[in-house]
Design a protein around this nucleic acid. Structure first.
Lengths: 104, 104
DNA sequence: CGAATCCATAAGTACAGACTTATGTAATGT
DNA sequence: ACATTACATAAGTCTGTACTTATGGATTCG
């Protein structure tokens, strides 16, 4: 039930790679196009899908379009994973360690 | 990098629904077929994809094949989500509450 | 034994989607 | 003003894939 669009958005490897780059930095379409072996329209189409899934945000400035990963982009996916996680108590200890680390 | 197969496996809604059922109970192919509006071969094909992604386990008994969600089925996905999560400190408090609850 | 059941695989169809080139719109540069 | 740059959309192609029916192998039942 957490928007099925996100699953479809994640299905394509190029699109995942685009998202990963946008989670590290805000980039323009041109920037992204330079980093991949596909055409600029292909990148624009991927961005459109990612945007439709609520995974990226757009900021217009002049003739440029800056894209970045949306805050909470993976929230719906996280909720789904948590719900259908199997044997999850196994991982609690590791999680506690992470939280302790962050508390320092 | 966490097996790309899992993303492809999750892309199809019917397949997600099959997985969700198998995370609640161990079921045979016939059981599953009864619960969906697709043919038995279609179910077998979905199970094959899920198995290829390491998401379900199979147990043979006579002419029946029992399927269930594999332990750690979503581990790779979880790792990916954690890595690309944006603004994740926001969720730490909620997580702490959950862990405290489990400690009781 | 033969019939029925359970499941997987084969083969074919039809649609989704990832790509291309071509083109249009809007902003910037000279 | 005209050319150039940045991006989006249109239209067409081609591959992937979700489904179907048909069939085969293996097990259980009568």
């Amino acid at each position: 039930m957490p928007e099925p669009d996100i699953f479809r958005a994640l299905a394509d490897p190029t699109r995942r790679a685009v998202f990963e780059r946008l989670s590290a930095a805000e980039l323009t379409v041109s920037d992204l196009t330079r980093g991949f072996a596909v055409s600029q329209p292909a990148i624009s189409q991927h961005l459109s899908v990612l945007k439709g899934a609520g995974m990226v945000a757009e900021r217009r400035q002049g003739r440029q379009a800056w894209y970045r990963a949306a805050p909470g982009a993976l929230e719906g996916l996280e909720a789904w994973v948590t719900r259908y996680r199997s044997f999850w108590p196994e991982r609690v200890e590791a999680l506690k360690d992470v939280l302790k680390e962050m508390g320092e």
